[in-house]
Design a protein around this nucleic acid. Structure first.
Lengths: 118, 118
DNA sequence: TTTAAGTACCTTGACACATGATGTATGTTG
DNA sequence: CAACATACATCATGTGTCAAGGTACTTAAA
């Protein structure tokens, strides 16, 4: 189980990506994240909704109340152009970050050797 | 330039890895990180030294003052067995995290199509 | 028919980590 | 002697995560 604390800084990006294919709402997104991560990542509600506020405040998404006639009310979210641009930028940052962390965490020579000998 | 905020949660792992090949000290490690990351990541001093305190407090590293006869004094750090175990565990967590984020940030079908057509 | 569980939203307070600012001290080089 | 590099350290502040708590509707089981 991966804590979102470790992904800190990527919660927003994950949400933006979930909205890239069209409008969605909180509960659904949290389910999708759980499923796509094979149960390893669960965005807690407090994290999720504060992230939505943050993203809306910065102009990356906009939202409205759905007009569900049955069941619980839902608030829908949608990417703005700015949000789409931000998603692109942050995906590139992820690529860089991944490469750098791979380099920085590369196994020690001794460890590699052990594995080669195994 | 990648903010360490984005790597938050990996500062400790990076430091543990820097100590995996033998004892070292703060200033040198911060230089190594800068070089290995191609200048993209700079561990700020405050971040560095609070991380050392944290790691020593949790028993992952131990430290001592060097006996430099010239130049500024240095505090050396070294992995404990516990630290070595923690490094292994956290490298595995990184592998998982990387895979999960890759999945979660995978480009949208529409975007992929655009690229294929390009 | 009550109860539990699922859907769906929200806020508050506590906590952890990163960092700008600031300080100490020594050594080297122009 | 001024500037820069080496080398350590702390404090206050900001930001993000999350446990805990709350609201309200729907469906299925007991």
């Amino acid at each position: 189980m991966i804590s979102a604390d470790i992904l800190r800084g990527y919660t927003d990006t994950i949400l933006l990506r979930r909205l890239a294919d069209g409008p969605s709402y909180g509960y659904r997104i949290s389910q999708e994240v759980r499923e796509l991560s094979g149960g390893a990542l669960e965005l807690k509600e407090a994290t999720l909704y504060t992230a939505f506020r943050r993203l809306e405040g910065s102009g990356a998404i906009r939202s409205w109340w759905g007009d569900e006639e049955r069941g619980a009310r839902r608030r829908y979210y949608e990417l703005t152009d700015q949000g789409r641009a931000r998603l692109r930028a942050e995906c590139e940052t992820w690529t860089d970050t991944r490469r750098i962390l791979d380099t920085l965490l590369q196994e020690a020579a001794a460890q590699r050797q052990e594995e080669e000998e195994a």
